[in-house]
């Protein structure tokens, strides 16, 4: 485990805590895309199938449980919780995310490390995570102004991916066999999706103005 990887996981954890904090403190999920959260549940369930089969470390297992349970808790709040579900921007959150699921699954069937159930699910989760943020970015552009917590949420999600890319670069130079081409390609695509968001986030931070995304 290198520092980049740990920083990446901690940043990822922060994104989950930001969402839970926002929902718990404001009892509102306005500005949050339920579609993106549902995609994340699929990502974590498909990727952490090995939670009970191959044990890596206590840290690894604990973090997997945290990510799966928190992503399910967020979807539960946005769908079921009587107060929170009313604040969901149903009309704005219209991205047809099932195409992302179908596309990622098709890609996983074609490109995977081994054509086994577990490897196909793993590749599926990697591809799906790369595009899972799309409904959220579209929702932000639709709603124009971005409230602070949601802006920070997307920012930290992007930061977690940047740390993971640094982690892969570090591992590439320090370990012989390290060649996660699936993660590399999907990770680069995923981080690229954040590029324009980072740009507008930086501009708003520099001008100390509200984050405005071009519609």
């Amino acid at each position: 485990m290198n520092a980049f990887r740990l920083a990446g996981d901690m940043t990822h954890l922060i994104t989950v805590l930001i969402l839970l904090l926002k929902i718990y403190a404001t009892k509102s999920c306005s500005g949050i895309s339920l579609k993106t959260q549902e995609l994340y549940v699929m990502v974590f369930v498909a990727r952490y199938l090995d939670l009970f089969t191959n044990f890596i470390s206590v840290y690894n297992s604990v973090m997997k449980v945290v990510f799966v349970t928190s992503s399910i808790a967020i979807v539960w709040c946005m769908r079921i919780h009587p107060l929170v579900r009313r604040t969901y921007d149903k009309e704005q959150d219209t991205f047809r995310h099932y195409f992302l699921v179908a596309g990622s699954f098709g890609l996983a069937l074609l490109f995977n490390e081994n054509f086994t159930f577990r490897e196909v699910c793993w590749a599926f989760s990697i591809y799906l995570e790369a595009v899972a943020i799309l409904p959220q970015l579209v929702l932000l552009q639709r709603s124009g102004n971005v409230d602070n917590l949601t802006g920070q949420y997307v920012f930290f999600l992007g930061a977690y991916r940047v740390f993971y890319i640094l982690n892969w670069i570090y591992r590439y130079f320090t370990e012989k066999h390290f060649s996660r081409w699936i993660s590399w390609i999907a990770g680069l695509v995923q981080t690229a999706l954040y590029a324009d968001f980072f740009y507008y986030y930086f501009i708003s931070w520099k001008n100390n103005s509200k984050l405005q995304l071009p519609a």
């Binding site: 090995d50 890596i56 490390e113 370990e175 993660s183």
Partner: peptide, 10 residues
Amino acid sequence: NPSKDVKDEL
């Protein structure tokens, strides 16, 4: 390091 890299990342 096993030849097949173990999925040790989250």
